[in-house]
Amino acid sequence: MASFQAVKKSINLAPTVRALPSGVPAAPLLNLAVRAPAEQHGHGHGSSGPRADVPPSWAGGVSKSPFGLFTKTYTTAPSPRVFQQRLLHTSAVVKDAPEVPDFSHYRAPNTDNNRALSYFMVGTMGVLSASVAKSSVSEFLQTMAASADVLALAKVEVDLTTIPEGKNVIIKWRGKPVFIRHRTQSEIDEARSANWKTFRDPEPDEARAKKPEWLVMLGVCTHLGCVPIGEAGDYGGWFCPCHGSHYDISGRARKGPAPLNLEVPAHDFNDAEGKLVIG
């Protein structure tokens, strides 16, 4: 009883439902021919399995059909009458308590070492994976950096010994003009004494020129990108002819529409050879 529970459903049968030849109404969704499975304890009502005295229908036989007599034969069908009790069987004897082998011999006497080893191995895998992943990511990011041939072109060397005092030199660096001004002492004094805090883009001259006599700037007007003219303008520095911006002798915007001072590129002096390295 415990193993079988019928699912009870209530279905309203339509009064006009068709009846099968057996008299059972043909009810969709409802199997009226279902039977409860056999009960395991003998009440004398017999088993609901195949009858032992009648050959089962799947064993063949003659049947009637709308197309005439129909014979179905299977060679392997056993005779139901020949019934033999199986006296030998291979299934295990059912016992109340399942037998579990004795695994105590295989058990570690102390699990601390095993636990630490497992954590250590898993952690080591994490360490190596993280290291490999970090290398992969950093190598990949390096592919986005400028390649060696671009970097080789990114630096320009200028021989400073050929530039006399008080002269401008314009060189090309990364496609842009670079002004190099060998300033005289009076120009240095003028640039340093100016009250730079009142300027549009306040910046002291000390922050712009690494060496006071050398001023290195990008020759691109910060207004709209024209190339200013040297030794011109109201402040003795540079003058942009496009829209009239005036820069002083330190390249700072003093007048006109330019919002910022002329940009100073990264540069270094090579004192031993008297060279300037831009970039």
């Binding site: 636990r115 630490a116 954590y119 952690g123 994490g126 360490v127 190596l128 993280a130 290291s131 970090k134 290398s135």
Partner: peptide
């Protein structure tokens, strides 16, 4: 190993040193 945060942190630290 006891605390996961310490575990993961030491894994990353060890990865850095190992690299």
């Amino acid at each position: 190993f006891k605390r996961n945060s310490v575990y993961v942190g030491s894994v990353f630290a060890a990865a850095f040193a190992f690299g």
